[in-house]
């Protein structure tokens, strides 16, 4: 993992001094780490603001080379239920930390993806292992974390990074990668990133795959790739009676951007309200779309279901 070509990893700060933004948070956590005394932590804030990065630095500073053995990284969205998470924690907590720190670290990402019931179970687990483990919980909104957990944690709120912070980070990478970035391009990346450092770096890396000189247009090219407009066009094609074309384009678009059936359905659902059809038909269509979404969730073939949905829209177009 050390020689990764994913820049968000390659340039992920390794030390508190390298972190951009979140100065207050960094200062306090640094002090805790120096005293080798850490409470449970709850990191709340939007994506790409440094939650995972700081958690990883804590581990690296506490345990040095052994950090991987002393930290359990898990996330609430990939594990099948709280029981799996609890078992993982139980197994991990069974052995003592290696080195002179008396506790191990457990990083639970996307903690707000847990239901309230699961969070109750998590709370009990936290209590059981407090003697040997410290928890760092990451979430987007602390309001989605039940109060008993909140009260057991020190809460840090991460804010979107400021423009100069994002730009200084990008420039650091540009220097190491020998990139030349236009001023306009830097501004554009910041605008698109909305203070999300991960997004900013990913956009930069995608731009750099086109060449070492980075221009504003390229930034927009990457941005539009990441947020395709084709779904709307496909809906319009189908409504206008070009079903065959719409169908082909749908296949193509899904594969080109790696969209799942659900990604597409969500996009269609959002767009239906802007179509030039009567409200009654809109509502009927929404009902249909819901049905198709249900079918895909239930395990039907996403391409076939979306094709069939397009056929329904095609029919509505003809009846207008």
């Amino acid at each position: 993992m050390e020689d990764t070509e994913i820049w968000t990893e390659k340039y992920r700060p390794e030390d508190f001094s390298e972190v951009v933004g979140q100065e207050e948070i960094v200062k306090r956590i640094k002090a805790m780490v120096e005293n080798k005394n850490l409470p449970h932590l709850l990191f709340a804030g939007p994506a790409g603001t440094g939650k995972t990065t700081i958690a990883l630095i804590i581990a690296k500073k506490l345990y040095g080379e052994n950090w991987r053995e002393n930290m359990l990284e898990t996330n609430a969205s990939d594990e099948r239920g709280i029981d799996v998470i609890r078992n993982k924690i139980k197994n991990f907590a069974r052995t003592k930390a290696i080195g002179d720190v008396p506790f191990k670290l457990i990083l639970l990402d996307e903690a707000d993806a847990l239901t309230k019931e699961a969070q109750q179970a998590l709370r009990r687990t936290m209590e059981n292992f407090t003697a040997t483990c410290r928890f760092i919980l990451d979430c987007n909104y602390s309001s989605k974390i039940i109060e008993p957990i909140q009260s057991r944690c020190v809460i840090f709120r991460f804010k979107p990074l400021k423009k100069e912070e994002i730009i200084s980070y990008l420039e650091r990478i540009a220097k190491k990668e020998r990139l030349e970035i236009e001023k306009g391009a830097l501004d554009a990346i910041y605008e698109i990133s909305e203070g999300d450092a991960r997004k900013a770096v990913n956009v930069l890396q995608a731009c750099a795959s086109l060449g070492k000189k980075i221009k504003e247009e390229q930034v927009y090219e990457v941005a539009s790739f990441a947020k395709p407009q084709e779904i709307k066009e496909i809906l319009m094609l189908s409504l206008k009676g070009e079903f065959e074309k719409a169908k082909q384009k749908m296949f193509d678009t899904m594969l080109k951007y790696g969209l799942s059936g659900l990604d597409v359905i969500k996009e269609i659902e959002r767009y239906v309200w802007n179509l030039e059809i009567s409200d009654e038909i809109k509502v009927r269509l929404i009902d249909k779309i819901g049905e198709y979404e249900f079918r895909i969730v239930e395990g039907s073939d996403e391409f076939l279901q979306i094709e069939a949905l397009l056929a329904q829209i095609f029919l509505i177009g003809r009846m207008r």
């Binding site: 994913i6 790409g48 996330n75 969205s77 990402d109 795959s209 990457v222 790739f225 790696g258």
Partner: peptide, 29 residues
């Protein structure tokens, strides 16, 4: 996800589009 300290759903949202873009445009990477 394994390589970026994220979940698979975060990987789909935050990384997949950019990695696809790179695959289409730069053979070396």
């Amino acid at each position: 996800a394994k390589n970026t300290h994220t979940s698979t759903s975060a990987a789909s949202k935050f990384y997949l589009p950019y990695i696809k873009f790179i695959f289409k445009n730069n053979r070396k990477i």
